[in-house]
Design a binder for these strands. Structure first.
Lengths: 222, 222
DNA sequence: ACCTGAACACCGTTCAAGT
DNA sequence: ACCTGAACACCGTTCAAGT
């Protein structure tokens, strides 16, 4: 997936389309019409070529999506001035990744990515791992701590994005309401107590609160 | 999605297949061949009917998947004896949900579910919210705390399931390795330091550690 | 009310051939 | 080396008709 360091143009027919053009056009389709509209056939048509020509520049659709995420991260991730306090460095780096990812919901399809191993995201991972070490964790526990933060962040985005997609479909949104409507207060008293506030409460953006709690818990000496 | 409380059989042609049969056969296909093999056409063939007959019992494929998750949760979630200490009650309930979901990776396609609002999961949500209240949080903050735990849990499962899927494809697993191989130690010292231990470190199951850290952070009076 | 058949409007990818 | 055309083996869903 990383561009080969030597472009080494081999002999033979000169290429008419480039990997870069493929990614760029794919990005335009995704931005303008959503990731659901990105098909190899559609992309080929946009480029003015055939579906099979694409397979000379990306190995398959999954690689195309990963390239798209790399490209997006590279263009939008901006490194913040790292705060002096390591705890804040961790929070700031995680929040920066979260902000960028949350702004592009199509990401969910790719997020699957083991650890968001985009080159451009590595600096943020470094900030988090280093911040945890500076807080007294061993390098091993710091890596585990980074993973926990990544789980929390990826989960927030996946859950939120899907909830938003569901909400768009009016007829489906009522399921939760029905379940909450006939809750048995003697069996589930707490849920009954908050039942009518559930929707607004879960609509609030509490990513940062949860992140701070998690980071606090991770660095607390136990 | 909940069965109507009155079955009220209307007049007309008697049904040859039931919603329950549809879900059961779908479950068998998923268990034996994976969620990727579950198609409306395949399912209809298994039942000995036509694809369109299914649409009389489920509104579309997405509803079928949600029904499948409900069914799975109902059959496998077993309520643990709640520990006396509220902190442990939270951890135990979350771990129980996590254990069940982690054991069925196909869930990822559905996990999207806003809050896992399966009826059978509500008891676990109650345990978590109630435990947080018992630890001194307001009901509102307790709901937010539950959400954070759910983000963390869902994220862990999604990330792990996708990583496993990728690992199955040998040729793709090398990307991370390549990125780590030519890491610049002066720019990313911490990552360079743990680079060769990254794979085993991230393969470890640290769900419980992260969960405990998150819960600690959530209930810490600040 | 429930089910069927045929069709619509698509997919990603392989294969064999052309330049 | 790069691109094309045709085909393979599928999808989910709608529509009109049958019982």
């Amino acid at each position: 997936m990383p561009q080969p360091s030597t472009p080494r143009r081999a002999l033979g027919r000169p290429p008419r389309i480039s990997r870069q053009e493929v990614v760029e056009k794919a990005r335009r389709i995704v931005d303008e019409e959503g990731v659901g509209r990105l098909t190899m056939r559609r992309l080929a048509a946009e480029i003015g070529s055939t579906p099979m020509a694409l397979y000379h520049h990306v190995r398959d659709k999954e690689e195309l999506l990963v390239l798209l995420l790399d490209d997006y991260a590279e263009r939008t991730l901006r490194r913040p001035e790292p705060p002096a306090h390591p705890r804040e460095r961790i929070v700031t780096a995680a929040a920066a990744i979260h902000e960028v990812l949350a702004a592009c919901p199509w990401i969910v399809e790719v997020l699957a990515a083991d650890d968001l191993m985009s080159r451009s995201a590595l600096w943020f991972v470094e900030q988090i791992v280093d911040g945890l070490v500076a807080c007294g964790l061993s390098p091993e526990r710091a890596v585990h701590g980074y993973r926990a933060i990544w789980y929390y962040t990826a989960g927030e985005i996946v859950v939120r994005a899907t909830a938003a997609r569901r909400r768009a479909d009016e007829s489906r949104a009522t399921y939760r309401e029905r379940v909450f409507a006939d809750l048995d207060p003697s069996e589930l008293p707490r849920l009954a107590q908050v039942a009518d506030r559930w929707a607004p409460l879960t609509a609030e953006d509490t990513y940062l609160d949860g992140l701070r709690a998690l980071v606090d818990g991770l660095i607390a000496t136990r």
